[in-house]
Design a protein around this nucleic acid. Structure first.
Length: 419
RNA sequence: CGGGGUGUGGCGCAGCUGGCUAGCGCGGGCGGUUUGGGACCGUCAGGUCGUAGGUUCGAAUCCUAUCACCCCGACCA
């Protein structure tokens, strides 16, 4: 992509009404546009990040046998009444609307009910189980107060996976497998070291659940972390009984702020029972399917990663999710230099390396500032200086020094850094 | 939902206390000088001041209502 063609531009100043670092940087860099409180449009660069995150998640879910589908955003009230989750007293984040004929509809804040109904026709016998189904979908939640930029919105993207098992043992096995897949996701997204499985409240689903919490000052949760055991407890459930059950000691715990980047629940028959999702077992007996649900918020992750990795100069993207691997800046308009840069742009792309090519006729300082703000993992400079040496100048986004190396060496470097 | 704050060109702000031709910076157009860390000079365009009422000869400035946004708290599948 040529920077001269990209319709978004960077801004020096952040909007006054955004306080969170993620919103400030993402808006300044032209990754997102705020539509209204808690509602953000993803612009081309932002969408690339979001899609890259989705792809990582998708690959890990597929790897454990997840089958992707896509449920609807519009919801039929009837199915939610069956589980007593339509009433505003029970679920207070509903956005509700109506058909022309006054039939009530809702915008899905989560998807257990419609999913159960959708899979029901296909689940009859024990032979049809187990399986995992998931989607990456927009969720709508009428939060009383949106905040923290893209980290807590009223409209946001969520990957939600659901497990369907015959027995508790089978459910446990799936649950564990999915938990491991989640760790892989966070590692690939570059926040694995700061992300901890956290014992938490089960909310409306059950007494307890597991959250994945990324240690981050902008987070909304307080967790108590045992770094040695790599396990944490959310303050909302911290008591002696819980500590004992997890075999951790209070004095080993460190209090930290964290952002929830995933939450997994054991549902048992909470939804299958009222909605009649049953199967016939080997002994001809009807049984309720045992479910679990597992969420990750890709749009929130964009914010968390920004909060965690962004610095005073701008965004910093891990190689795996950066919109482009390389920010190529050509300095000056000398014919030979421009030609060398054009050739390099073609060469890198042919080698499968995505490049944002800053071909604009602006001063070097502006290109460097934009390179930092936009946060691509590598910045390459082509100028008279580098041309004389027959090399290219390479700088990692967070590095303080530049290196003069050959194009071939750079390609090798990128290969080695791929996770 | 309780408390606090803010709405003035695309963005950041001044002007409002003590009413009466709406100003600055960034960004944008044009011309020129520049070219390794957001350059400089000149010039031009762009707002009727969130919205609706009211007071007044006269309102961005005062009053009322309303909408939106932000922060703290409560809430959070």
């Amino acid at each position: 992509m040529k920077a001269s063609q990209l319709f978004t531009k960077t801004q020096k100043e952040a909007p006054a009404d955004e306080v969170s670092k993620n919103a400030q940087l993402l808006i300044r860099a032209g990754y997102v546009h705020k539509e209204m409180a808690g509602v953000y449009t993803f612009l081309p660069l932002g969408l690339k990040v979001l899609e890259n995150i989705n792809q990582v998640i998708r690959e890990e879910m597929n790897a454990i046998g997840g089958q992707e589908m896509k449920l609807t955003a519009l919801q039929d009230a009837e199915i939610w009444k069956a589980t007593d989750r339509w009433d505003d007293e029970k679920v207070d984040v509903w956005f509700k609307t109506k058909l022309k004929n006054d039939t009530e509809l809702g915008l899905a804040p989560t998807h257990e009910e419609p999913l159960v109904r959708a899979v029901k026709p296909y689940v009859n016998s024990y032979k049809d189980l187990p399986f995992l189904a998931y989607q990456i979908q927009t969720k709508f939640r009428n939060e009383v107060r949106a905040k923290s930029g893209v980290m807590r919105g009223r409209e946001f993207l969520m990957k939600d996976l659901y497990s369907f098992a015959r027995t508790e043992a089978e459910h446990e096995e799936l649950y564990e497998k999915i938990k491991q897949a989640y760790f892989k996701v966070y590692t690939r997204l570059g926040i694995g070291d700061q992300t901890f499985i956290t014992f938490a409240s089960g909310g409306m689903f059950s007494k307890y659940s597991h959250e994945f919490q990324t240690v981050c000052d902008a987070g909304e949760d307080i967790i108590y972390l045992d770094r040695k055991q790599k396990i944490a407890v959310n303050e909302e459930v911290l008591d002696d009984e819980v500590l004992k059950s997890l075999n951790i000691k209070r004095e080993d715990l460190e209090e930290v702020k964290a952002a929830e980047v995933g939450n997994i629940f054991t549902l048992k028959d909470k939804y299958s029972k009222p909605l009649g999702l049953t199967f016939v077992d080997e002994n001809d007996k009807d049984q309720n399917v045992l479910m679990g649900c597992y969420g990750i918020g890709p749009s929130r992750l964009v914010g968390v990663i920004t909060e965690l990795l962004g610095d005073e100069k701008g965004l910093v993207w891990p190689v795996n999710i950066a919109p482009y691997k390389v920010y190529l800046a050509v300095l000056g308009q000398d014919e030979a230099v421009v030609k060398a840069a054009n050739d390099l742009y073609e060469d890198l792309q042919t080698s499968g390396i995505s490049v944002l090519y800053d071909d604009r006729d602006v001063r070097p300082g502006e290109k460097f500032a934009d390179a930092d703000l936009l946060g691509m993992p590598y910045r390459i400079v082509v100028s008279n200086k580098t041309l004389e040496q027959g090399k290219i100048e390479v700088k990692g986004r967070t590095a303080s020094e530049t290196d003069l190396i050959t194009t071939e060496d750079f390609k090798k470097l990128l290969q080695d850094s791929a996770v």
